[in-house]
């Protein structure tokens, strides 16, 4: 078991009323799963993803990640945990505009204090694997959306995370680019055993996964 959410509640208070963003979420994710989270706008998909990614907190419930009880951890430990095990892929890629492709890939390794020779090897390997060696000295603005997301995925993967969290990874891409990214996810999941949780609006994309979770008004349905 990779992670487990037990009775997770998250709410905000607005005008004396408690508005639930997440309501009694129970979810268990095994290693090697490929889960798609679906639901209409405002149903809490991204919130759930952020909670799983430990970027956001929750108000009630228990969250176990590997052997750690996330709900009891201090902020500092929590962020160490996600830095170690989780890679993020964003809808709008969020590559750093001032950095070249190569440098964008290198960034997480710098923060994890890898040596220069190791970094070079790992970045070269990733460029190779994603077939973007020729793009390594370009800036993000010089790439197409699909290529940018490719770099985004490569960056999420580079430090060997156990879990990839992708928030509408194809939301800004056309259908052909989408197809390519989803194929990539499938391959990563099947061949390399990477656990993936993605948020998506598209039934077609959801079909790539092994399991679909539907959310409505913060509840799993």
């Amino acid at each position: 078991m990779l992670l487990q959410l037990k009775n997770i509640f998250k709410w905000v208070n607005s005008g004396g009323q408690r508005i639930f963003l997440l309501k009694d979420i129970n979810l268990q994710v095994e290693e090697g799963e490929f889960i798609s989270v679906m639901g209409p706008s405002g149903s809490g998909k991204s919130t759930l993803l952020n909670v799983i990614g430990m970027l956001d907190t929750f108000d009630e419930g228990e969250y176990h990640f590997l052997d750690e009880s996330v709900h009891t951890l201090k902020e500092k430990h929590r962020s160490n945990l996600y830095k170690e095990y989780i890679g993020f892929v964003f809808q709008s890629y969020h590559l750093l505009d001032d950095l070249k492709v190569y440098e964008n890939l290198e960034m997480p390794l710098l923060y994890k204090k890898f040596k220069g020779s190791e970094r070079r090897a790992m970045v070269a390997d990733m460029l190779d694997r994603f077939n973007i060696v020729g793009k390594k000295d370009l800036f993000p603005a010089q790439l197409s959306g699909g290529q940018q997301q490719l770099v985004g995925v490569a960056r999420a993967l580079i430090a060997n995370p156990k879990l990839i969290l992708a928030d509408e990874p194809t939301g800004n891409l056309n259908s052909q680019q989408s197809e390519e990214i989803m194929q990539l996810f499938k391959r990563l999941n099947e061949e390399d055993g990477v656990t993936i949780i993605q948020v998506t609006h598209s039934e077609k994309n959801a079909a790539y996964g092994s399991r679909v979770i539907n959310l409505l008004d913060g509840r799993m349905v």
Binding site: G53, L55, S79, Y82, K83, F88, H94, L95, L96, D97, D98, M107, P108, Y111, K112, R155, A159
Partner: peptide
């Protein structure tokens, strides 16, 4: 701000 956010998710202290 975006850069800071990205860096933090990538593991920056």
């Amino acid at each position: 701000a975006k850069e800071v956010g990205v860096r933090k998710t990538l593991g920056s202290d």
